[in-house]
Amino acid sequence: MQPIPGFDEVQSIEEVVALPERFDVFYRREFAAVVGLAYALSGSRMAAEDLAQEAFMAAHQQWEKIGRYDKPGAWVRRVVANKSVSLIRRRASEARALARVALRRREALPALEPVDAEFWDAVRSLPRRQSQAIALHYLEDRPVAEIAEILGCAVNTAKVHLHKGRANLASRLGPEGAS
C-alpha cells in the first residue's frame, strides 16, 4: 500500500527545450579533460586522444540532439569511458595512433612518472565500473551525483563503486597507497 517512490525527483517537461551550445565551443572546452579521462582509463599514450576524438565525433554527428542535453559533457565522458575499457577498441585506436606517428602528424602523450603510472595501472585493474568511478572522482573532482549521471546509474550505486574501488585500490597498492 505504498505510493510509488521517485516523486521527489520530479522534473518538468516545460523546461526540456533548450538551444544547443555551439559544438566547437563545447569541443574546445571539454576536449583536454576527456583526453585525460581516456588516458587514465585506457593507459595508452597512443590511443587516448583517438578515443576522445571518436567520442566527440559521435557527439558531433548527433549534436542537434546531444547539444540539447543539460550536460553533453557527461554523454561524451560516458562514451569515452566505455570505449577506453574495451581491449579491442583500444587496440584499434592504438593502431591508428601508431600509424599517425608514422606519418609524423602527432606525437603520443608524454609518459607518466612511474609512481603515477603504477597508480593508474592499479585503477585499470579494478572492475570496469569501479575504475570509471575512481577516474572520474580523482581526475575530474566529480561529485558522486555527477559520476552517477555519467555512468548512467543511481547515486547509491555510484557510491558503492567508489567505496569498493577505494578499498580495492588500497589493498592493491599496499601500505604506501593506503596510508
Partner: peptide, 27 residues
C-alpha cells in the same frame, strides 16, 4: 591513498598540458 590519487591525477593533467592536443573540431 587520497594523496597518491591526487598526485596521480596531477600527473595526467600535466601530461595533457604538455601534449599538443588537436584543436581541430570534428566534422
Amino acid at each position: 591513498l587520497e594523496q597518491r590519487a591526487r598526485a596521480a591525477a596531477d600527473g595526467i593533467h600535466a601530461a595533457i598540458s604538455e601534449a599538443e592536443l588537436s584543436s581541430q573540431v570534428p566534422g
